Simulated assay, not measured.
Amino acid sequence: MRQYIALILVGIYLMSCSAKKEVEVVPAVPEKAPEVAELSKPTNNSVCLVGGNTRADEVQFTWVPAAGATSYDLKITNLKTNTTETKSFPTSPATVTLATGLPYEWQIVSKSVKTAMTASSAKWKFYLTGAGEVSYAPFPASLTFPASGQQVSAASGQLKLTWSGSDPDTGNSLLSYEVFVDTDIAKVRNREVAAQKTKSETLTIPVKSGGTYFWMVKTSDATSTSYSAVYGFRVN
């Protein structure tokens, strides 16, 4: 009997030794994206004055450092050519050489070595003036709806286009607009369609279901004009 009990105890011991211990898995805390940077200078819709260099000059960009960010991408868009240049900096400020006599848009993207997530700031516009300039063209209009490549639904075959304009001289009060819309992008880009004039920053147009449309806005003040990028959209 004692031998039988001993064998049972040994079996229980061996089973307990061979059993796998459960390992408690602690989930990793996901890294957070850095905060959005707050832009400082050049201020929005402003004119940056430079010295006697009429070809290029240095512009200092400043922003409030964002929590969690270890570096920043400075994105500068030439609003006349609609081309964007991106430069990386460890912190604010950042100095970049730009051609004068042109409108620009800038934005800061906060980045971190701890995560692939980023955070993008607002976009601000400024005009970099050269020597002798006293009057400046309005900024190209920012097309807000429909966005480029967006699919939209139209109510009763009507769609409201919206955009925003600004001028470094007069603000918005003296601006007027001409809107070019067509199903042919080349006709819009070359302004080969009749423009629809308006003082507001909206225009309702007729559209057809399944159609693809392209649009562009010309902005004018008392002395000069500018043209937006060409956006395309599809109607459901």
Rank of each mutant, 00 (worst) to 15 (best):
Q3W: 14
Y4E: 15
I5E: 05
I8E: 11
V10H: 02
V10Y: 09
M15Y: 13
S16E: 09
A28W: 12
A28M: 13
V29E: 15
P30Y: 07
E31H: 06
K32P: 00
V36L: 14
V36D: 05
A37E: 03
L39N: 12
S40E: 06
N44T: 02
N45K: 12
S46K: 06
L49K: 07
N53Q: 05
D57L: 04
V59M: 05
T62I: 05
P65V: 02
A67P: 00
A69K: 07
L74T: 01
L74K: 00
N78I: 08
N78V: 10
N78P: 08
K80W: 05
T81R: 15
T83V: 02
T83L: 09
T83G: 02
T86R: 03
S88R: 14
P90V: 10
T91G: 13
P93N: 00
V96P: 07
L98A: 05
T100G: 10
G101E: 04
G101D: 01
P103I: 01
Y104H: 12
Y104Q: 08
Q107P: 08
Q107N: 07
K111R: 14
S112R: 03
V113A: 10
K114P: 01
K114T: 09
K114M: 10
T115R: 00
T115K: 01
T118K: 07
T118C: 04
A119S: 13
A119T: 05
S121F: 00
S121C: 01
W124A: 14
F126E: 07
T129R: 09
A131I: 01
A131W: 02
E133Y: 05
V134G: 13
S135L: 12
P138A: 13
P140F: 00
A141S: 05
S142V: 15
T144A: 08
F145G: 10
F145P: 09
F145C: 02
F145Y: 15
P146A: 02
A147Y: 04
G149L: 02
A154G: 04
A154E: 00
G157H: 07
G157K: 06
G157P: 04
L159T: 13
L161H: 14
T162C: 12
W163M: 01
S166T: 13
S166I: 00
D167A: 12
S173R: 07
L174A: 02
L175P: 01
L175F: 10
Y177M: 02
V181L: 13
V181T: 14
I185F: 10
A186F: 07
K187C: 03
V188Q: 14
R189P: 00
N190T: 04
N190E: 13
N190A: 13
Q196W: 07
K197H: 12
S200N: 15
E201F: 04
E201C: 06
T202P: 14
L203F: 04
I205N: 08
G211N: 10
T212G: 04
Y213K: 06
Y213W: 05
Y213V: 02
F214D: 03
W215F: 14
M216A: 02
K218P: 00
T223Y: 11
T225K: 12
S226K: 01
Y227C: 05
S228V: 08
S228Q: 02
S228K: 01
A229P: 06
Y231R: 03
Y231E: 06
Y231T: 06
Y231S: 11
G232P: 03
V235D: 06
